[in-house]
Design a binder for these strands. Structure first.
Lengths: 162, 162
DNA sequence: AGAGCGTAGTTGAAGGCTTGACTATTCCGC
DNA sequence: GCGGAATAGTCAAGCCTTCAACTACGCTCT
């Protein structure tokens, strides 16, 4: 019910979506859900690493020293502190990440990527990148690629103005 | 690690993303995650209905008779059968949906939207549509709206060719 | 009619995520 | 330095999702 009623003229009333807006919204919503779902499934079934965990490993691997404060890591992964804390515990059990007290701030913890973690990431990256190419870039024209970037950046500025 | 190495020339090797592709992919990924997250939070905190439940109610409300077979409903909501079955049970507890044996096929069940369910949906729709407008349509130009529809439909054709 | 197979849907256990409370540490103004 | 506010991170309870049985029904071939 992003509804089929006519636009509400009264100020303060809900600004309903017209038929074209609804089609755009539905296509965007279902398209991205389906894509994200598919990528997550392919990665998980091939490597045992969910996309959320993959993202954590990626962020660590791209940082000099392969270490980040827990909250910095949470921010970069669009994750809550609590969720990240749980996830790092599980990655620790697998031997891919190690916790370490932060030298500069005794309150803080560093999550450090281990060599095993880096190796696991490297293996997973092949699978994941291939999926992204198959299901996204192979489907889109250069103009479409430019526009998803443009829209993505627009939404980021609005929703996550660092 | 959608990585910074150079494109792999060997056939059969992973077709890595170049820098531009990575930026597009990251922007798309983070932008849609942030948007979907935000919409879900606003809807849930204002109405107690998660976006997943909202989708179920919408699909039922848009069907003549406000009733659908469980598997048809699952497909339309991009949900697994099991997940939908659990969700419908919870919606039943709230009195918003009712199960009914399917007349034509004794194996089947119909999920039927109750009047209370329809009323709850109507209330939630105001909140949700306002969020979608604020965080999506108010941010995008008409060209950008056209392109999210175009990309969405392209991905749908590839990932969900009914 | 009945055996066998496929389809529809449910269930329960296991594990992940969210919320909110809690501990520990640091920062800041006096 | 010292007391209070702020920050970092963890933990427990409850809900949601997934996976793998499992039940029930219908269809077809004999």
């Amino acid at each position: 019910m992003t509804s089929s009623r006519s636009p509400d003229p009264s100020p303060g009333g809900t600004r309903w979506l017209d038929a074209e807006e609804q089609k755009a919204w539905r296509a965007y919503l279902f398209g991205s859900q389906l894509l994200l779902d598919r990528l997550d499934r392919e990665l998980t079934s091939a490597t045992g690493i969910s996309h959320a965990y993959y993202e954590i490993l990626v962020q660590l691997s791209e940082t000099p020293g392969r270490a980040l404060r827990m909250s910095e890591l949470a921010d970069r992964c669009l994750s809550s502190r609590s969720r990240l804390s749980h996830a790092v515990s599980r990655l620790e059990e697998r031997g891919w990440v190690r916790r370490q007290v932060c030298p500069e701030d005794g309150r803080g913890q560093l999550a450090v990527l281990t060599d095993e973690g880096f190796a696991a990431l490297e293996a997973a990256a092949h699978v994941h990148v291939e999926s992204v190419r198959t299901h996204l870039f192979d489907q889109l024209s250069p103009e479409q690629v430019a526009s998803i970037r443009d829209v993505g950046e627009t939404l980021l500025r609005h929703l996550d103005p660092r």
